[in-house]
Design a protein around this nucleic acid. Structure first.
Lengths: 219, 219
DNA sequence: CTCCGTTTGTTGAAATTTCAACAGATATTC
DNA sequence: GAATATCTGTTGAAATTTCAACAAACGGAG
């Protein structure tokens, strides 16, 4: 397990947990490490939602097949990131999405119940883990909140301005760098990339903002 | 406090908590009841995010003023419902929305820290409260997940079919009743009501579904 | 420095959504 | 059960987005 320390320490589930605590804790939690080859299914839609996953190496995608047969990528999962925790904690019977390996990867699986219920050894760290899990869920709720606030606007311009002013507020400055390239921003805003580029140009022409690639300044 | 028992028991924060436990628990948590007149602000945008609110009577709205000066209603709050818990648990400094009374109302306020940290009396119920809070957050995450899954589709038809097939799957039947009227469904799907009605008619004409108001059957 | 793959911007036509206005159907109230 | 208010469906024109295709700008690699 030692070789995973670095990745695990960056995982929100283990924040404020020291390296010495980590190893015994993993034993108590019954953490398992499983490897998957590219394209293999880590969690299958409909499977029981009992485990929390932590990506150790490689990457995966959360996907969903819709009514029209289109595969949608809901989100990517990189090392140190958790997945499945909302399904496990909400106690839904089965998960509504699939998680598929994007490349060969290693995943740590922990049964959610082992985190929530104090074990017989009465380890002291459960409290901290539960905190961390709670904060993680609350943070995800907030991120969704933000996204919905933006995407519920009807026009590309409104979505873009809502996103940009929100970023400016969060960064505390009218100048800031966004974490998306154009295509990613378009996906986040749920608009067409070409239309987004056009709208940015218009706003620039109207003197409402200055921008260069990922750099923006609201005027 | 007794007069609020019925409402509080329906609140997800207090599930699996008996009536006898409730009263002492509220004392330990330092729960306060505050009244607001219509249009009064319960939580103001920018205020510290320390408290969880529970609506006891009356109703309120979570609102946000956007870049264009439009007031958007993010959600309504009815008796027994909680609000602000995601902001408090995520430990963001201040809340990004306002909560405003829709009519005269009574609200119970509980400091989030009092729930998360065992009090000096070492009451046994904290564990259950923390569970409940976690489940509440996870459930909200899932609901957002579902909404984004639906609204990220680009056309009215796709949004509608994604929503309806999802409902059918959840209800385990091709016949089901939805909890929205047309306007509410349009708001949820983030489309125009008239366009939604037109699309439903088309789908009916194509023999893809039968419907009458809130009743739907997928064929 | 040049080549080459990637990202970003531009454009016009086709498809879709929004908007406004109205009519019919269904609830609600007295 | 008649009157009134609310909800739902319909329609056509205007506005917006999507789509496809290409050009320009950028960033590494050699």
């Amino acid at each position: 397990m030692k070789k995973y320390f670095e990745v695990l320490q960056k995982c929100p589930l283990f924040s404020h947990i020291s390296e010495e605590q980590l190893l015994p804790m993993l034993g108590c939690l019954g953490a398992k490490v499983v490897s998957f080859d590219k394209k293999y299914t880590i969690f299958a839609e409909g499977a029981p939602a009992k485990h929390i996953g932590i990506m150790l190496s490689g990457s995966a995608q959360v996907i969903q097949v819709d009514y029209f047969g289109n595969r949608t990528i809901l989100t990517g999962i990189s090392p140190s990131e958790m997945f499945g925790e909302a399904f496990a904690c909400a106690e839904v019977g089965s998960i509504p999405v699939s998680v598929v390996a994007n490349e060969p990867c290693e995943v740590m699986l922990i049964e959610c119940d082992h985190i929530l219920h104090t074990c017989s050894n009465n380890c002291g760290f459960h409290q901290q883990l539960i905190f961390n899990l709670m904060k993680d869920l609350a943070t995800k709720t907030l991120l969704f909140h933000q996204k919905i606030e933006v995407t519920s606007k009807r026009t590309t311009r409104e979505k873009l301005m809502t996103y940009l002013t929100g970023q400016a507020k969060r960064m505390g400055s009218t100048s800031f760098t966004i974490p998306f390239n154009r295509q990613e921003l378009a996906d986040y805003l749920e608009v067409e990339r070409s239309g987004l580029s056009a709208e940015i140009s218009k706003l620039r022409a109207e003197g409402i903002l200055e921008s260069n690639r990922k750099q923006f300044r609201l005027l």
